[in-house]
Design a protein around this nucleic acid. Structure first.
Lengths: 119, 119
DNA sequence: GCCAAAACTTCAGTTCGTGAAGTCTTGCGG
DNA sequence: CCGCAAGACTTCACGAACTGAAGTTTTGGC
């Protein structure tokens, strides 16, 4: 993107595409099928989901598992290189909770923020 | 993007635009002028930089300071809400170092990764 | 060889980012 | 008070990315 020798840029290149981080977030909860991802990521077009999964697979971040069954089944999961992105997603989750006033009601919040939400 | 009540989606909405995270990374090093950002983010168009800064300002993530001087000067800096994104950027930096084989030669790496780069 | 169902592709249209070029602001020097 | 230098942006035309609807491929049983 800017300087390819910058670690932040290199990582940004991977996750900057629309929906990419959310695909990884979903797969962090366990392997999933194409249509499950499509349903979870409400609003994504199948074309974009397909492009994202292919790109992530090429980058060694997700793995594709095919099952030759009656309706053919395909599942996706994170590789270790993909799992390593989970802390990043957790940071995003806590940022959203502390500063954007958004909470899906999962875990409890850790500490009082300096100037939450209102800022 | 997908579910607005999801903290990860809400945060993704903020940072998913091209260059956004890199603008914040630059401002994390201290307040900066338009042309300095333009020079640091090699390849960004002034239009995009302008759009990003405006959007981030509207979201309360950056602050704009104008100085009515001989050539008029404008500087940008992070608000607390913007500073709170720095841990996210640090995660991206260490991911880039550990898994993408990219190092701008700043700090030393912490520990040996399980399966670095090669994966 | 036809079927249902999952997993994608294809296509036309809109939105987002680029690169070059132009505009606007500021105050000083002529 | 006009023109100038220089920073900070707009504007415009073009190309790339994303969308939504519709179509295609794959699989094994009937």
């Amino acid at each position: 993107m800017a300087d390819p020798s910058c670690p932040v840029c290199a990582t940004a290149d991977i996750i900057c595409g629309k929906w990419t981080i959310l695909v990884i977030r979903d797969l962090a909860e366990g392997r999933s099928r194409f249509c499950e991802l499509e349903r979870s990521l409400e609003g994504i077009s199948p074309r974009t989901l397909s492009l994202r999964l292919r790109a992530l697979e090429e980058q060694g971040i997700v793995e594709r598992h095919t099952y030759p069954e009656v309706p053919p089944r395909v599942e996706y999961s994170l590789t270790p290189k993909g799992e390593a992105l989970v802390p990043l997603i957790e940071d995003m989750r806590s940022y959203g909770r502390q500063w954007l006033g958004v909470d899906d009601g999962a875990c409890a919040t850790a500490a009082e923020p300096a100037e939450p939400v209102a800022a």
